[in-house]
Write a protein that binds this DNA or RNA. Structure first.
Lengths: 343, 343
DNA sequence: GCAGCTGCTGTTAGCGGTAACATAGCTGTT
DNA sequence: AACAGCTATGTTACCGCTAACAGCAGCTGC
């Protein structure tokens, strides 16, 4: 803090270490970065001096001089819904084996905020950017395209990526789920989800879902949206409202597992026969579901793997700058759980 | 990306904007930072040029020249347990009204990793650091003390802070919960929690809890620990194991709400009378609980407020550097819910 | 008419490192 | 002995921006 024990002490520089160890600043720099040949004795003396002084290198100066920044910007909509932390885990896992470091920015599903966060990040000249989704403001797209660094758009591949992309087809995922539901004999199907002006992926799932229903000669019986609040509680409330409105509904498709879990708990509370009278399904494959009394049908979104692959792309470009762009499609698997009836 | 439309284009600098708009680099710099007087016409010309070129300032150079970095390092143990995202929300909420920006680092409850993350962060010379807990490696403490920037240790105040601290007394929280439980007539009390070599706060809660039991002439009947995996599921499993071992236990105190929720679901599944035969309590006050069939007793940890106050301290020091250190103690409230019986 | 503003713009000298090149001392070779 | 070929270290010139100060109009006031 401010006025520590000894003196007013300004912050240390290479020069301080250089003077303390009797070699040039350059040599100190080399030792501290393990770059170039330095004799064992000198290295030891320098390290000793740096340690006792408590020198912490100034990466700002280093980055400016070397034109190299070991940071990777990661821009995600939210931290509080279990899905992005897992993506982060995948990213960290891979970057931990490189000299790159993730830096997180959060947009709260606001495109304007995404643009602002991106601008801020690019102004630190990172080695790459990973960001969620394919939909961005025009300005954001322009910045990304101009940045001259590898960009990976994650989660979604239904659209035109700027550079690289890693994700799943949410449209297809929605379709698959609808097909499975219809195949199990459910006919009166309803949707419950987030209000999604800016959750494009939830919208794409719904689009795919409805498309497959249509192809089967069906249509959604009803739909219910929410925003904000405890997802579990909202799931209960929405389920209650929807079933009250449509007592004959036989399947509830939720846009995410959390509200699905709320719905499941509600049905169990009310003694509703699941999956006999009503079937349920969510989306994401969150770990939370493992602890529920019954396993909710879901599709995992390959979150960990998405994080890993995205990081690998950035790391790859960092090691060998002239690789081309790529699009990696992952395929989620349907986990039927205990809430879709089997024949 | 790499080879976009037009030319090989190196990244733009102030000079490019300066040439495009016919004024000096300094004037461009002033316009872009809204610093100093610039005529309206010039300002407009510069902004126009910057916009059409797609110029993004280089904060690395700016920070080096001005010796000012608008970043605040935030170091937390984990993103995946609902508690830290909420702290982050509080921090962002406050910093959004300043020119400061949070940068997150995650330690996974490892002191060595915390030290590494801290070193990395300090090497970017942030304007302040917020980090969880009062326990750090000796080297980390030394770095923090030397950094010459405001430090805020959050979550916990049972110990000696390096500079500022904002948090609650976990020891007291544990004590309070024990007192409430004993007051409700429970006598055969067990603890279920995380294995906590490095979760000092969970340990302090348990310490306080046992201390209060002892004062009431009681002791823990049994205890059960876990690590890793789905907390909800673990809660079920541990509860099962513990109740099998001790059929006469009448209260289960969980180290966090998530495993508590698992325990609650288990008890409801098994038809165990809650809170008649067995009472339950957790810790944290997570939103998730609102959706459960019955409300788990808990104590909120003031997470949002902790984030806010910590950010305010940093912002305050940033505005007026000569403020002294402070310790802010917050007081969690006990939420009895439906899982402690009332007289 | 001129000192003394005020308002706008330019110049200079770094910030703390690192790339690239230069240099000094040693080998081992022929 | 002379020289290439090391290895270990030092020197120089920036990286892109901003603080601090300098300059120069055009006014104001007396």
């Amino acid at each position: 803090m401010k006025s520590q024990g000894t003196e007013p002490r300004r912050t240390l520089t290479l020069r301080d270490v250089s003077e303390a160890s009797g070699v040039s600043e350059m040599t100190v720099s080399r030792v501290l970065r393990n770059r170039g040949d330095v004799s064992g004795t000198t290295r030891a003396r320098v390290l000793e001096a740096a340690r006792t002084l408590g020198y912490v290198p100034n990466k700002i100066a280093g980055a400016l001089a070397s034109q190299r920044v070991n940071l990777v910007g990661v821009i995600i909509p939210s931290l509080s819904n279990m899905v992005f932390p897992e993506v982060m885990t995948g990213i960290s896992e891979v970057l931990d084996n490189t000299d790159l470091q993730p830096v997180v920015g959060v947009t709260n599903y606001s495109p304007a905020r995404e643009e602002a966060v991106l601008y801020e990040m690019l102004s630190w000249r990172p080695s790459g950017v990973i960001l969620a989704g394919l939909e961005h403001t025009a300005a954001a797209r322009a910045m990304l395209a101009q940045a001259g660094i590898p960009i990976v758009e994650i989660m979604d591949i239904d659209g035109q990526p700027i550079d690289n992309a890693v994700g799943i087809s949410h449209r297809r995922a929605g379709r698959q789920m609808a097909e499975a539901i219809v195949a199990s004999g459910y006919r009166k199907i309803a949707f419950l989800g987030t209000q999604m002006p800016d959750d494009y992926r939830a919208r794409k799932r719904l689009d795919g879902f409805e498309e497959a229903l249509k192809r089967a000669g069906l249509a959604l019986v009803d739909r219910e949206f929410y925003s904000g609040g405890s997802a579990l509680l909202k799931g209960r409330e929405m389920t209650h409202a929807l079933l009250a409105r449509n007592p004959d509904v036989d399947f509830l498709y939720y846009s995410n597992d959390m509200i699905g879990a709320g719905g499941l708990l509600y049905c169990l509370d009310k003694g509703i026969d699941v999956p006999g009278k009503v079937g349920l399904a969510g989306f994401n494959g969150v770990e939370l579901l493992d602890g529920l009394p019954r396993k909710l049908a879901t599709m995992d979104a390959c979150r960990l793997e998405i994080g890993r692959r995205a990081a690998q792309i950035i790391a790859g470009h960092n090691a060998a700058p002239d690789i081309g762009s790529e699009v990696v499609e992952l395929f989620p698997t349907l986990q039927p759980g205990d809430t879709i009836r089997h024949f």
